[in-house]
């Protein structure tokens, strides 16, 4: 289902529809790496804009201002430790929707390179969740 071409995405112009910011945890586990791939795929599907979660942790001004002007924030966490959500909340942002990859049928492991089929299955579930809202 998903084509995972990781390429440089241009900074988005905010002209047009509502801004949805996607913050994956990108953690050091299979589910963390899946969260990043899911965020990229959601962006490719026009659902939102991938943003740097560590930039929020660092309070990088450009990232903070970009998040502040987002109409909705979606945190994509790999596991229930919820680092992406907590990072955003500690920085004062309201997380509009949290997705937890390990709650979508994926067991957390030390894997670094999730299979495309696995990512594709999770992506379908995530899109289903977001569309049901």
């Amino acid at each position: 289902m998903a084509a995972y071409t990781v390429e440089n995405k241009e900074t988005k112009c905010s002209c047009g529809s509502a801004n949805v910011a996607l913050f994956p945890c990108a953690g050091a586990a299979n589910v963390g790496q899946i969260s990043n791939k899911i965020a990229i795929a959601l962006e490719e599907n026009g659902i939102g804009d991938l943003m740097c979660t560590v930039g929020i942790g660092a309070r990088a001004p450009g990232l903070m201002k970009s998040a502040e002007s987002s109409d909705r924030i979606i945190a994509i966490d790999g596991c229930p430790v919820s680092c992406a959500s907590k990072t955003l909340e500690l920085a004062g942002f309201k997380v509009g929707r949290q997705i937890v990859i390990s709650e979508l049928g994926i067991k957390k492991t030390k894997g670094r390179n999730p299979k495309d089929e696995e990512v594709g299955e999770v992506l379908e579930k995530v899109i289903g969740i977001l569309q049901s809202e």
């Binding site: 112009c13 801004n19 001004p61 970009s66 987002s70």
Partner: peptide
């Protein structure tokens, strides 16, 4: 220049930078 824009960590434009400080992004 997109590389220059991204060097400020700005993900959505327009953005305003005054004397190196990002004041606003996305509106």
């Amino acid at each position: 220049d997109i590389e220059k824009i991204m060097s400020y960590g700005v993900m959505i434009t327009p953005a305003v930078v005054i004397d190196g400080d990002v004041k606003l992004a996305g509106k």
